[in-house]
Design a protein around this nucleic acid. Structure first.
Length: 794
DNA sequence: GAGTTTGAAACT
DNA sequence: CAGTTTCAAACTC
């Protein structure tokens, strides 16, 4: 495609030159409407056009819409939907740029690094998207819809004032010559251009003069020029912003000018428009900026204009740590930070795969993959895709993909939304801690609200949950109390607030002692940990540590509670009695708690003890080691009624379950990546409030961490249980990790010898060989980054 | 809020 | 692999 695009550009250039060269303001337009082109060629016409920015924009938009489709027509290279490819490329690119701060990765493991980055990116994207209208980008790519373009335009306009420098966004891209880049630039120009109109002439003149223009004027000029696509304009545009000397700029300029010439490029524009905006916003990834700080500084200096603008932020942010620092993304980041990190490992690969496979919506895929494709956990990375897709588009995307997947989708969609929030929470990605992403949050909130109708509390929570950011941002605000309080609050709230909050003092949050770390999320400010290294800043360290732990125990980060509808015959225990036959992967070792307190991981996870447990005096309400199930547990299981609430156990369960529920992942087997978790939470059918969740649903990993996940957990519960349950069951079976199923039950693998042995040896046997089921296994493995070898890359 | 209990995780 | 230590959550007061 790139090549083709270049060809087109060349052609367009040649054409433009033939027409009249630089003076030709609108080579593109002429192409757009051939008949009109002649008229447009006339400077007067151009001027007139300039006067009406709206038209110009529309034209772009329209072109985009259609073009996007046409453009999407994939060149041979891109078998997969073009859009996805674009996204991918973009992500990848960002990757490279985005993580200057993480030198370690490169050293460590290319794959991991990439994955990590990818995860990050994803997270970023998700966050950003949520924050920015631009976020629609992902969707835009998916759906070349107006909205995205519109948003982009709006954003661009807003930016225009402040940042005037589209470059902020563009700069990073410069190095890479991709269609995206082109589009990106173009789109930028488009934005800018929309606003400045009248001054165009003056600007042009100034531009020609080259120097001495006010930055603003320059910007306006540039915008105008760009908008109108005159090559000159592009040049002028560049001049003010950057020294011509800068090769990148040159490239950009040239590209822009060239690109503008092509009408065909219009299609690209359409697609990219959204993305462009996003990128601009994303400038979080300061990555590219690093090299260009000088330019940035110039920009800053130039501009008061920039002050206060999001772009400005981007600019200001330093490349390396920008993520953390970025002002607007603060909340956002929270999500990102927390969730994505771990998943990222190995994500990149998945991403790529996804991109190739992904058709319409990455997000959809991700979810789809998650559920339908357990085969490919890899997709899990979908998280990335997921992140990519902005909240807004989630639903739509879900719809789009719905056809593909299970009925589950609808639910999934919701879940995805949640995830995104998290990621945020991511991914639940849990990951949505972003406050800045109000749009997304709102949308999510709305969804949650809808779900929650009927349960006032839930609604209230739902709103909170909706803003995962709250988890992060609010978390900070909220988390005034001591960690314990927080924790309790979480319990009370059902962790809706949810983010995991640790209180580590010696582990540096780099051991499984740390709930956050164990949950695969970064520590957030609400955490009271000391000397915490579980932060995005130390991503490399975190990943490395994670690797080590996983090397020691591949399932270390896998959910501790494995849900298996099949009830893992192998385990064969009474455990089957526990609801949904969920089991703790390793079993507990309780001596004094009687498995009636949260000290007991089984109890905490809402599952009964099994033969795997070495507990003494087991009284686990969810199912005793000996196979007896407590009355309360039975009641829950059978009736799922509120009756259980009365029992003490239930009370405990409520507290417990909420969090657990959150954690639970249908994919329980999957590693505790936030996304998974988030997902699980979403899927949970029952309202935990009234009842303790069925163990079956509970798959709590060590982690519960997703703020979002957790938060959403409740709301999710509210949703129609029946459907969910059915779905869940189906999912369970399908998703049930191979490990659990059949021979490879994780437990067997893990416990292989002694149930007691805490250290699990990886179930090697499982992974790998058989295709169909293997797929699920693959997923599991993939989730575990440390074992790339196990997962088939391709 | 401080202190204790508990059991998982980590270490030897 | 078993035993011990470390750790932080869970719990109690």
């Amino acid at each position: 495609m790139i090549e083709e695009g270049r060809k087109l550009e060349r052609e367009s250039e040649s054409e433009a030159n033939g027409r009249g060269g630089p003076d030709m303001d609108t080579p593109e337009r002429s192409r757009i409407s051939n008949p009109i082109a002649k008229f447009e060629d006339s400077p007067v016409f151009n001027y007139i056009n300039n006067l009406s920015p709206i038209k110009s924009v529309k034209s772009l938009r329209i072109s985009q819409t259609f073009n996007s489709f046409s453009f999407s027509s994939p060149p041979s290279i891109f078998t997969s939907p073009h859009v996805s490819s674009l996204k991918e490329s973009r992500f990848l690119r960002r990757h490279s740029f985005s993580d200057p701060s993480k030198p370690d990765f490169s050293s460590d493991n290319g794959n991991n690094v990439g994955s990590a980055d990818g995860g990050k990116d994803v997270a970023h994207n998700a966050d950003e998207q949520s924050l920015d209208p631009g976020s629609c980008v992902g969707e835009a790519s998916l759906d070349p819809t107006y909205e995205c373009s519109n948003l982009a335009i709006e954003i661009s306009q807003t930016l225009n004032n402040g940042c005037g420098s589209p470059d902020c966004s563009t700069m990073p891209c410069r190095g890479i010559e991709t269609t995206e880049t082109f589009v990106h630039e173009i789109s930028e120009t488009g934005f800018v251009g929309s606003e400045v109109h009248l001054e165009r002439k003056r600007n042009i003149e100034q531009n020609k003069e080259g120097a001495g223009c006010d930055w603003e004027s320059l910007i306006s000029d540039a915008t105008d020029l760009l908008i109108f696509e005159s090559p000159n304009g592009a040049e002028s545009f560049n001049v003010p912003f950057q020294e011509p000397s800068d090769p990148r700029m040159r490239l950009c300029t040239s590209l822009v000018s060239e690109f503008t010439h092509h009408e065909t490029s219009g299609s690209q524009k359409t697609q990219t428009v959204g993305p462009v905006v996003v990128e601009g916003c994303e400038s979080e990834n300061p990555p590219s900026h690093i090299g260009e700080e000088g330019h940035l500084k110039e920009l800053e200096a130039a501009g008061d204009v920039l002050a206060g603008t999001s772009l400005n932020t981007c600019i200001d942010g330093e490349p390396s740590e920008q993520f953390d620092n970025e002002p607007f993304s603060g909340l956002h980041r929270g999500m990102r930070r927390r969730c994505l990190v771990f998943e990222m490992v190995g994500t990149r690969r998945k991403r790529i795969e996804d991109s190739s496979s992904s058709g319409s919506s990455l997000l959809a895929q991700s979810e789809v993959n998650m559920e339908s494709n357990h085969k490919q956990l890899i997709p899990m990375n979908n998280s990335s895709s997921r992140c990519i897709v902005p909240g807004i588009g989630l639903h739509l995307n879900a719809l789009a993909r719905t056809s593909k997947d299970h009925s589950i989708f609808s639910h999934e969609t919701l879940a995805s939304g949640n995830r995104l929030i998290n990621d945020p929470s991511s991914t639940g990605s849990f990951h949505s801690w972003n406050t800045g992403q109000e749009p997304l949050n709102k949308s999510l909130a709305v969804t949650t609200m809808e779900r929650n109708r009927g349960d006032p509390e839930i609604q209230a929570q739902g709103t909170e949950d909706a803003s995962p950011a709250s988890g992060y941002v609010a978390g900070e605000e909220i988390s005034q109390g001591s960690p314990r309080k927080k924790r309790r609050g979480l319990q009370n709230d059902g962790e809706i607030e949810g983010c995991k909050r640790c209180n580590c003092k010696k582990s540096k949050c780099l051991k499984l002692y740390c709930e956050c770390f164990a949950a695969g999320v970064y520590c957030v400010e609400p955490c009271s940990c000391q000397e915490c290294f579980n932060k995005p800043i130390y991503e490399a360290t975190v990943l490395e540590t994670r690797k080590q732990i996983e090397s020691r125990n591949p399932l270390a980060f896998a959910p501790k509670v494995i849900r298996s509808s099949d009830s893992v015959p192998e385990i064969g225990d009474d455990s089957s009695k526990t609801p949904a036959s969920a089991r703790h992967k390793r079993g507990c070792n309780c001596k004094k708690s009687g498995c009636l307190k949260k000290y007991c991981e089984c109890f905490q996870g809402g599952v009964g003890c099994s033969i795997n447990c070495r507990c003494e005096g087991c009284k686990n309400a969810f199912g005793r080691k000996d196979g007896s199930v407590s009355i309360a547990a039975e009641a829950e299981l059978e009736e799922e009624t509120e009756t259980c609430e009365k029992s003490v156990v239930n009370e405990n369960l409520h507290k417990i379950f909420i969090p657990n529920a959150v954690e639970q992942n249908p994919d329980s087997t999957l590693p505790t990546t936030p996304f998974h978790m988030g997902r699980a939470s979403v899927q949970l059918p029952f309202s935990y409030k009234n009842k303790p969740p069925r163990s079956s649903f509970l798959s709590i990993g060590s982690s519960s961490g997703f703020c979002t996940t957790q938060r959403f957990g409740k709301p999710n519960f509210l949703q129609p249980q029946h459907k969910f349950e059915k779905q869940m069951q189906a999912v369970e079976e399908d998703e049930m990790p191979e490990i659990l199923q059949g021979n490879c039950s994780p437990i067997s693998g893990i416990k292989s010898g002694s149930p007691n042995s805490k250290r699990v040896s990886p179930p090697y046997c499982e992974f790998g060989s058989t295709p169909s089921r293997r797929s699920s296994r693959k997923l599991i493995l993939q989730s575990i980054p440390s074992f790339p070898s196990l997962t088939p890359k391709d």
